[in-house]
Computed example of a mutant assay.
Amino acid sequence: MSEKQLNEQQILDGLFETAAAAPEESVFLKRLGLRMTLSGLTASKVDNIRDRCTKREGKKGAVTETLDSELFNATLISEATTKLEVVHNYGKEDEQRVSLQGWGDSRITSRMKLSGGEQAIRRMLLAGELNAIGDRVLDLSGFGVDIDDVKN
């Protein structure tokens, strides 16, 4: 065998290191010139976001729940964004970048008179962009895992 044999502790260390590191992906939104790095979220984080974005209404002893999908996607994107930058002349020799401190960066919120990052996302992204990026966050969070990836 050409590969180095690992001991039990090294194998377990590899498992825990992999489990602790969520997948990340850089996404470029050409229309806005925004590059964002998205990270997968834990199940408890996604559940918490879903719960915060669900409206509950009681009528005649029955409770109906309605998920605000726009707020849900905006919150997913806000929580999953680890790096955000505006890129001018993307991919060209004279490319310029401005790094932001996330969607709640005061240069965004104060200019647009918003209270936070979720509002900035909802204001800046088109409906399809919001859904596509929200779906990408869910994919990074393991919701797009194919059964073939899990079996055996």
Rank of each mutant, 00 (worst) to 15 (best):
M1A: 12
E3P: 02
K4Q: 11
K4S: 07
K4A: 12
E8T: 05
D13N: 13
G14Q: 15
L15V: 15
F16Y: 15
E17G: 15
T18L: 15
A22R: 14
P23N: 13
E24F: 02
E24M: 10
E25Q: 15
S26K: 15
F28W: 02
F28R: 02
L32C: 04
L34P: 01
L34Q: 01
L38I: 04
T42G: 09
S44Y: 03
K45A: 14
K45Q: 12
K45T: 14
D51W: 08
D51S: 11
R52T: 05
C53I: 00
K55Y: 06
G58D: 04
G58N: 03
G61H: 03
A62T: 05
A62S: 04
E65V: 03
E70W: 00
L71K: 08
L71G: 01
F72H: 01
N73L: 00
N73E: 00
T75E: 11
L76G: 00
S78L: 00
T82V: 14
T82A: 02
K83V: 06
E85P: 03
R97Q: 15
R97C: 13
S99H: 12
G102P: 05
W103Q: 02
R107H: 09
R107N: 09
I108F: 10
T109F: 04
S110E: 14
R111E: 11
K113C: 04
L114S: 10
G117A: 03
E118R: 10
E118H: 02
E118C: 07
Q119F: 06
I121L: 11
R122H: 03
R123V: 13
M124K: 06
G128V: 05
L130K: 07
N131Q: 02
I133S: 01
D135V: 01
L138A: 03
D139H: 07
D139I: 07
L140D: 10
G142V: 13
G142I: 10
F143M: 12
G144S: 14
V145C: 13
D146G: 09
D148Y: 07
